[in-house]
């Protein structure tokens, strides 16, 4: 961690309406695609779940990086969040494997 970060005293420029509206637009579009896919035959495909997970991961990332300003703010916040999220996701996968809810090779 860079101590005594003088730059952090200055106000970090956050994006404005111009970017925010596009972020909101893409969030809606992705959600619309997710729901649409749910009603197509693609639902039966093996790729359905991974595709949906990917789409929601994109939504998740967009909100976190733009609306929560992680992209612009001090890297410390990124680390705090990544640590919690990382350990949470690893624990979740471990639990799912342990209970046989997930299996290697489907």
């Amino acid at each position: 961690m860079s101590d005594h970060n003088a730059a952090a005293h200055d106000h970090v420029e956050h994006p404005t309406w111009k970017q925010y509206k596009w972020v909101g637009f893409w969030l809606l579009v992705i959600t619309a695609i997710e729901v649409w896919v749910y009603y197509t035959p693609f639902k039966e495909s093996k790729l359905f779940a991974p595709t949906l997970l990917l789409m929601s991961a994109v939504k998740f990332g967009v909100v976190v990086f733009y609306y929560m300003h992680l992209k612009y703010d001090h890297p410390l916040f990124k680390r705090l969040f990544a640590m919690g999220l990382g350990i949470a996701i690893c624990t979740m996968f471990a639990l799912l494997f342990l209970f046989g809810a997930l299996k290697i090779g489907g």
């Binding site: 005594h4 970060n5 005293h9 001090h74 410390l76 705090l80 969040f81 919690g84 999220l85 949470a88």
Partner: peptide, 21 residues
């Protein structure tokens, strides 16, 4: 402050990390 950041903002991010779990 040592980092120039606001205490409450650090705390809320720590809280969010915890909420992930």
């Amino acid at each position: 402050t040592s980092t120039g950041l606001e205490n409450r903002k650090i705390a809320i991010w720590a809280l969010i990390g915890s909420e992930c779990m």
